[in-house]
C-alpha cells in the first residue's frame, strides 16, 4: 500500500461525481418515476370510478325501464277504460239520436198524414159537391141548396 496524492485526486473526483449525479441525474429520473407512478394511480382510480359509474348507470337504466313499463301499463289500462267509456257514450248518443230521429220522423209522418187528410177532405168535399152539382143541376137550384151543401161539407 503506497499512499500518495491520488487519494486527494480521488476524493475530489468522487465529490464532483456525486455533485453531478445529485444535480443532473437523480432528480429528472426520480421526477419521471414519481409522475408515472401518480399517473398510473390516477388511471386506476379513474378506471374504478368509471366502473362504479357504469354500475350506477345500469341500475338507473333498469329503474327507468321498470318505471316506463309501469307507466305504459297504466296508460294502456286508462286507454282501455276510456275506450269502453267512449263506446258506451257513443252507444247512448246513437240511441238518443235514433230516438230523436224516430220521433221527428213520426211527427213528420203525422203532420203529412194530417195534411193529406185535410187536402183529401177538401177534395172529397169538392168531389161530393161536384157530384151533387151534376146530379142536382137538373133538378135543384144550386143557390137553394147551398145551405144544405155547406152543412154536408162541414159534417164530412
Amino acid at each position: 500500500m503506497n499512499f500518495n496524492a491520488t487519494l486527494i485526486g480521488q476524493s475530489i473526483t468522487f465529490i464532483l461525481f456525486v455533485w453531478f449525479c445529485m444535480k443532473f441525474v437523480w432528480p429528472p429520473i426520480m421526477n419521471a418515476l414519481e409522475t408515472r407512478k401518480k399517473q398510473i394511480a390516477d388511471g386506476l382510480a379513474a378506471g374504478d370510478r368509471g366502473k362504479h359509474e357504469l354500475e350506477l348507470a345500469a341500475k338507473k337504466a333498469a329503474d327507468k325501464l321498470r318505471e316506463a313499463k309501469a307507466q305504459a301499463a297504466e296508460v294502456i289500462a286508462q286507454a282501455d277504460k276510456r275506450a269502453a267509456q267512449i263506446i258506451e257514450e257513443a252507444k247512448t248518443t246513437a240511441k238518443e239520436e235514433g230516438d230523436r230521429q224516430l220521433a221527428a220522423a213520426q211527427a213528420n209522418i203525422a203532420q203529412e198524414a194530417n195534411r193529406a187528410r185535410e187536402s183529401l177532405r177538401d177534395q172529397v168535399a169538392a168531389l161530393a159537391v161536384a157530384g151533387a152539382e151534376k146530379i142536382l143541376r137538373r133538378e135543384v137550384n144550386a143557390q137553394t141548396h147551398a145551405d144544405l151543401l155547406g152543412q154536408l161539407k162541414a159534417e164530412l
Partner: peptide, 23 residues
C-alpha cells in the same frame, strides 16, 4: 488509477445523464 476511475465515472454519468435528459 485516476484515468480509469475518472473515465469509468464519466461513462456512468454520461449514460445516466443521457437517460435523465430523455426521461
Amino acid at each position: 488509477s485516476m484515468l480509469f476511475s475518472i473515465g469509468l465515472g464519466i461513462l456512468f454519468l454520461f449514460l445516466f445523464r443521457l437517460a435523465a435528459r430523455k426521461a
